[in-house]
Design a protein around this nucleic acid. Structure first.
Length: 568
DNA sequence: ACCCTGACTTAGCATTCCGGTT
DNA sequence: AACCGGAATGCTAAGTCAGGGT
């Protein structure tokens, strides 16, 4: 696949800002067309059955499919849905259906439940057939040719229509996400490639040949009016190189971070308020790994903030609390409406500055009123080429992993214990970056199951120990080869069971500590994979224990590149 | 200086897959 | 063979940041 070069990521890169010379692909896969419900499945309005027009019925099914979700009980969701649903109705339907509370979708909902149950019950052969068809589509549409490589495409299927589900308190939840047609689609490919054909009887919106970008297909989504793209898989050359570059930038920050830190500490004393604000914000970004915090259009999205957009109401100052001085309490909703809560002591100067920033302000006022991400990033750019706020997150995440691995790995431990250490180091990073998850619904049960296994293993162990003891006693009396051998066998059995027990206990510890923490995001986006590869090589831990197949594909560049001496 | 948009990365949850157990 | 649970994968929303226009 990579031709005469061993490492495709060592091929020459373009210096003129172009991303490719040749790009050929088959275009997107559209969502399957709507299939009307069988006539026996009824919708009821005000208790009476009512046949809906196909467009109105389709939108109704979107709601019916979500009936069990608490979304559908929320006022905003219902209001947005109803408004958009009415747009799809015929004028007769519109005049009849005026109150969502009088709509009964339960038959539709039950019908879909039966269907999904039936899908699960399909025979092996039927499932196999579907699998093969999916594989065929993947082979046809899931790959493209970019320059000399056949590359996997990330998301070649167009998002199907449905009801928009925002995260957190989103003002647009419940709105109709409309169906995307060929006429909405912009194709990007090279002139000299075989252009993808639109489905019979349709046309693309546009075919362009822009090699300054990496996307293959784009369309404009109707909820926020933003553009969506089809791009390559993370295993592709173009993504891998970019990823590598990202970590190289973070490593350059490592070289000058001391200088930057002493500079922003100096700036806490500046005569100029804007410089003090910039310096305190940067301190937060560095110390707490906060995101930059762009401004957002009010009312268009959920109310979330990052560092530069923090408001007065998001922090509390305690000159003294719990025996600590100069404590700042953060409490705000960040990206994806995930809560950030932290109470930390800060330097006296920072504290005094924060008091100053808060003077004469209302709770809803900006904490940093002389600062935004653009000002901050322009400043950072002057300090180091390529430096932006998010580089601090990458740098601090990766350096933390490296330090924690050094601290936590003990040479004499066995492989499961080493992996626990790795996960703990990973966890330290996830906590730093505030990567949370909802505790899995099955968490308690799965912990219980594991405990049952541990108990059983303990019983098994004491049985094995008892047997060993009696075998030893036996051997002492008889002193023959056969009984000696029996002792050895029993000893081995005890050892094996001890090892199994220890494995289970490690697993339980790991799972418990991981209850509300998501490791995946930092592993995939913040940790220089070369640190992990080097650690695996150093301690003879198979890389498969740390990265699954997909991750190994994404990090192929690092797996080839890093030896055990790699230092971030 | 400010605003807007396009391109790209980062994010958590939902769904599917798969291998072990009953 | 059916079932189950955890891991892997898929999905798409929600960020960051640069660049162009006014």
């Amino acid at each position: 696949m990579s031709g005469p070069l061993d490492y495709q990521w060592e091929e020459e890169r373009y210096t003129d800002g172009s991303k490719w010379r040749f790009l050929e692909h088959k275009g997107p896969v559209f969502a399957p067309p709507y299939e009307p419900l069988p006539s026996k499945v009824k919708f009821y309005y005000d208790g009476k059955p009512m046949k809906l027009s196909a467009p109105a019925e389709e939108v109704a099914t979107f709601f019916a499919k979500m009936l069990d979700h608490e979304y559908t009980t929320k006022d905003i969701f219902r209001k947005n849905f109803f408004k958009d649903w009415r747009k799809e109705m015929t004028s007769e339907e519109k005049s009849k259906i005026t109150d969502l509370n009088k709509c009964d979708f339960t038959e539709m909902s039950d019908y879909f439940k039966v269907q999904s149950e039936a899908r699960k019950q399909m025979s092996k052969e039927e499932k196999q057939k579907i699998k093969e068809e999916n594989e065929r589509i993947l082979q046809e549409y899931g790959f493209c040719v970019m320059d000399n490589h056949r590359e996997r495409i990330g998301n070649f299927r167009i998002e199907p229509p449905g009801l928009f589900r925002g995260r957190g308190d989103h003002p647009k939840m419940g709105m109709l996400k409309r169906r995307i047609r060929p006429e909405d689609i912009i194709i990007n490919c090279s002139k000299d490639s075989k252009h993808p054909k639109p489905p019979p009887g349709t046309k693309w919106k546009e075919v362009r040949h822009d090699n300054k970008v990496t996307w293959l297909v784009s369309w404009t989504e109707n909820i926020q009016g933003s553009i969506k793209y089809i791009m390559l898989n993370p295993s592709s050359r173009i993504k891998g190189e970019k990823d590598w570059q990202k970590y190289e930038t973070a490593r350059r920050l490592k070289k000058c971070v001391d200088r930057l830190r002493s500079q922003y500490r100096d700036d806490w004393k500046s005569k100029e308020m804007r410089i003090r604000q910039r310096a305190v914000a940067l301190y937060f970004i560095d110390k707490l790994a906060l995101r930059a915090g762009n401004e957002k259009e009010e009312g268009e999205t959920a109310d979330t903030v990052g560092c530069c957009s923090l408001r007065v109401e998001h922090i509390k100052l305690y000159p003294e609390i719990d025996g600590q001085e100069f404590v700042v309490e953060f409490d705000f909703l960040g990206k994806d409406s995930i809560r950030y809560y932290n109470k930390i002591p800060v330097e006296k100067r920072v504290f005094k500055n924060l008091q100053l920033f808060l003077e004469n302000k209302q709770p809803e006022d900006d904490l940093f009123d002389r600062l935004n991400t653009s000002i901050l990033n322009k400043h950072l750019q002057e300090l180091m080429d390529g430096l932006t706020a998010k580089v601090f997150r990458t740098y601090n995440a990766s350096i933390t992993l490296q330090q924690q691995l050094k601290e936590l790995t003990s040479p004499e431990e066995n492989i499961p214990a080493k992996i626990l250490s790795y996960n703990r180091a990973n966890r330290a990073v996830a906590i730093l970056c505030n990567h949370q998850r909802a505790p899995p619904k099955t968490f308690e049960k799965s912990m219980q199951n594991l405990q049952t296994k541990i108990d059983a293993k303990k019983d098994q162990l004491s049985d094995a120990r008892r047997e060993l003891k009696s075998a030893k006693a036996d051997a002492k009396v008889r002193k023959d080869e056969k009984t000696k051998k029996a002792v050895e066998t029993k000893k081995k059995a005890v050892q094996r069971i001890e090892e199994q027990l220890m494995k289970l206990e490690v697993q339980a510890t790991d799972r418990e500590e991981n209850k509300q923490i998501a490791l995946g995001t930092s592993k995939l986006n913040y940790l220089d994979p070369r640190i992990s590869v080097a650690w695996c090589k150093k301690w003879n831990v198979p890389i498969e224990k740390i990265y699954n197949k997909t991750q190994r594909e994404k990090f192929a560049w690092a797996i080839d590149m890093a030896d055990e001496d790699f230092e971030f």
